[in-house]
Nucleic acid binder design. Sequence first.
DNA 1: AAAAAATGTAAAACAGTCTTGACATTTCCG
DNA 2: CGGAAATGTCAAGACTGTTTTACATTTTTT
Lengths: 69, 69
Amino acid sequence: MTVLKNKLRSCRKERGDTQASFAEELGVSRQTINAIENEKYNPSLELAIKISRLVGEPVQEIFYLPKEG
Amino acid sequence: MTVLKNKLRSCRKERGDTQASFAEELGVSRQTINAIENEKYNPSLELAIKISRLVGEPVQEIFYLPKEG
DNA sequence: AAAAAATGTAAAACAGTCTTGACATTTCCG
DNA sequence: CGGAAATGTCAAGACTGTTTTACATTTTTT
């Protein structure tokens, strides 16, 4: 397993969301958003796609393998 | 949990791969590819991104929520 | 400086992802 | 037809993702 890099925190802040409000829009817990922002683990594919849709960026631009840019 | 729809089988066949050869290129087991093609469960985000990179299509075009096209 | 809001963190429980090994069925081709 | 290759499927086990509850720390606001 590899924990992916992500730019979730900046995507969320651009929306003016807190972790709690962002989590609520996605239907997940605040702790889940916190853990993903801090790269404790990867989201499920389903959650990643919901995040992508919410912030309007392709999945691969939000989450990427450490070796890639 | 929602099992996503996907067009993995056609993506794989376009490459002329068998489930076994496709799995090997991705570093996972043949059973994993079989289960995903048959929508038994979703791949991890990491695997979805590797698949996307291998077949050259964005994640969201390979895997999508049932309600979406 | 004090109160309130936001973020970090941890444990337990449960659901989901992936592996290996094994065997059955289907498809492809001499 | 007969054999080989490809696909389907199952079970057990290891590890990953998410929830809830609870509390500590940091940041923002008054």
